[in-house]
Amino acid sequence: MTQAVNTVLLGRNRVNPVARFFKLLWKQRTLVGLCVLPMALLFVFSYGPMYGVLIAFKKYDAGLGVWDSRWVGFNNLVEFFTNVNCLKIILQTLKVGIFSLIFTYPMPIILALSLNEVASKGFKRTVQSISYIPHFISIVVICTMLNEFGSLSGLFNSIRKLFGAAPVNMNNGTKYFMFYYIGSAIWQGAGWGSIIYLSALSNVDTSLYDVANIDGANRFQKIRHVALPAILPTTTMVLILNSGNILSQDYTKILLLQNNTNRTDLDVISTYVYTMGIADGRFDYGTAVNLLVSVVSLILVLTTNTIVRAIDPEQSIW
């Protein structure tokens, strides 16, 4: 249908694309009008301060401000890449980012589908409410609890004992860091993350279920053919956007999970930027590394989007 409209328009206005653009713009003036206020906010509050990224290529001098500080080209980035720990930090970042995506992304979807299959509204509501609670607990408290649970006399070791395993100090070294980091992310985020899918599922045309029932579909078939397609736009969107977060970890959480036995091994880019750029007050250097991360993240999102578009054009962001 859309395609048809376009061909018609194209055929008629082959002569002047600019005129055609304005004609369409006028035709869609209500839609354009709706965008004006939100876009104005976006321009003022997101694009307004954006000139600040310039200090990535400058030696920031507070007295001169962003505009008048001296240009240093790519010096800040060169400094980052010549840092002796650079490769180690990048590899650790990728490791944490990729594993986080793989393990944390599906959990809210599974939870939402599972909840959607519950017939008892009371039970469903209770489970939902409970599953959101961890979202509100601050990361400091969570890391304190993890430290306690992983100690020799802690909860995790009690569980290990049940299975006959010898107790280990899980806080020591780097071995259990990923378990801590990802496990707590799932614990804290799965319930909250499922809200968005549940809200999409609530919009499923129930007549589809009736059809499936008549066809004699079993539960898994119904999940696959009715529920999953219903949340597909949302899951794809979240996947595309999450793929851009591979390089950006929660630095507070990682800093809190570090201790003297593993501090040098657990640095990722975000903790590095924090210590260099914020704690040491080097705005220019921190901004430069952040800018690099942003560029790579944007490329990642664009790539994922292209892949998605190749598979199913309907689901891509644009």
């Binding site: 307004g48 301060p49 600040g52 901004t287 942003s294 993240s297 944007l298």
Partner: peptide, 13 residues
Amino acid sequence: LITMFFSGGTVPA
């Protein structure tokens, strides 16, 4: 999309 990844930092804001 650009605003998701780029920001000017605390001071300009």
